[in-house]
Nucleic acid binder design. Structure first.
Lengths: 277, 277
DNA sequence: GCTCCAGTGGAATTTTTGTTCTATTTCTAG
DNA sequence: CTAGAAATAGAACAAAAATTCCACTGGAGC
């Protein structure tokens, strides 16, 4: 048999071929087509078995799919998905070269810096792909409707909360930064009423005080907006709007780039929403 | 054996580990180290046999290399190279396509969010090009030598200072967050001595109190490290080390992504430097 | 209602791949 | 110059993977 005759050689052609032939394809093969277009990275890196499991098909179906598109086997198809990633990295090698030219590699702190810059970039790129815009819109709606916004963020999340307090102050949005200074957190939270909203920010390992303050806010009838790293967070269940942010890390230190951008967004969007009415 | 103990988990950390240990590595392993840094894609996609052939070594040498870095086997090492490709930042065309798919442009808050994410990315990219590594190294040297580090950052810079206080605390680096709560800033600063160092963070418009506190620190003999946005900043002249960070902005709100990354770098690098001696 | 066949699932098979083992070479130190 | 240790190459092995095969299902057409 002539190997790979008429099979798309680059990713763009492959995508076109899939889109074109999708209708005539059998059910299970169409299911694979959809999965492949939505999870190209999975195809590029996974094994037949792992992909089959995650796409909920049989391994043999994947091979049939590749054959149907004209490839000799699944491996040939996978090569196309891999080459797509190869091409994308062109500017990365340039960056590496640049780093070497500048002699970064020799400096300890240069490597650390580059690690954090890269973690920030990864965070942002990843977040871009899986933002839940609806959740953010909901959050803005809730916060814009609140009389006073109570900002709850301790330990690692405190910088975020304090930034928001500063920015909202500048924008004329009434807010209270619930801090633990002098142990007054509980008292501050007790001022909340049903016309207010609380913005709780917490990441694993979740500070117990943040959870307690948020629950208190909930029980006083305030609407709750949460920024956290997973839907399994203890802050998820009391939340009326949940914004999920998972930051990349370098050597165990998580970036804050995305969380900061989300914080800024909320401040500006809330102020804008209020300005409209 | 505990699997993967102490092995770098992301690519940046791996690169740092390789660069650091390169000298002590045996000849053949060093050859692999060089090849790996120059052909990361090959490592990510290739098989042990194919990589070995292309790097002109034996397959077993690759396994030894992975082991030497603390991984359980070559596969673990390869995973790091793959993960780097997984969430690589998208190029401009792909990003545009994604924007179109997700219909971001329709939502008000989506536009704002995208603006801030982009400002963060621009900040990071720009900073990468004009970092002064020497300045950062100087800063680390000064801070690592200090008995106590006084963190001076008010208003917009307060989130940075408070993050550093938190991180340094975690890392066992003695520090004092000079805050303006109860107007005690001046008193706190008056505790400084010549064996201490001050880290002053300020951006235009420079808070006068930050400048005053920094000058006070200088006059008490403390070494001064400064993070600011220009060499014309009032914080520039008293500085023993000056790190220049100019953030991109969206609608007048400046990103904090780069400053945060620099802050994290200083914390980790100072702790590491102290750990060495 | 029966037949036929494309489509499918799952196990069997074969190929590929990572890893381990050991003889040999290459350094290092006395 | 020699003994010992570290490093290496290459082949052998075991694990994992892709692929093939075959029995079965569910419709379409007669």
């Amino acid at each position: 048999m002539t190997p790979g005759e008429g099979a798309p050689k680059d990713f763009a052609a492959l995508r076109a071929a899939i889109a074109q032939r999708a209708e005539q394809l059998p059910k299970r093969l169409m299911q694979i087509a959809g999965y492949a277009l939505e999870n190209p990275d999975e195809i590029a890196f996974g094994t037949v078995a792992s992909i089959a499991a995650s796409a909920d098909v049989q391994p043999s179906a994947l091979v049939r799919f590749a054959r149907a598109l004209g490839y000799q086997g699944f491996t040939d198809l996978q090569d196309v998905f891999r080459s797509r990633l190869r091409d994308r990295v062109l500017n990365y090698d340039e960056r590496l070269a640049k780093l070497r030219d500048h002699g970064v590699a020799t400096s300890q702190s240069g490597l650390v810096l580059d690690g954090f810059l890269e973690a920030s970039e990864r965070s942002i790129a990843k977040f871009r792909e899986k933002v839940d815009h609806e959740a953010i819109d909901n959050a803005v709606t809730i916060l814009a409707a609140a009389h006073t916004i109570y900002l709850i963020g301790l330990r690692r999340s405190f910088p975020i909360a304090s930034y928001m307090s500063y920015a909202m102050g500048k924008l004329g949005v009434r807010n209270i930064l619930v801090d633990a200074v002098a142990g007054m957190g509980a008292e501050q939270a007790s001022f909340m009423t049903a016309v207010d909203a609380a913005l709780a920010i917490s990441f694993a390992p979740y500070a117990s005080q943040t959870v307690a303050l948020t629950d208190a806010a909930k029980s006083r009838g305030a609407r709750i907006v949460t920024i956290t790293d997973s839907v399994f967070s203890p802050l998820a269940s009391p939340a009326d709007a949940l914004i999920e942010v998972s930051e990349a890390d370098f050597e165990g230190f998580r970036s804050m780039a995305t969380t900061m951008a989300v914080a800024m967004t909320l401040c500006v969007a809330v102020a804008a929403r209020r300005g409209e009415s």
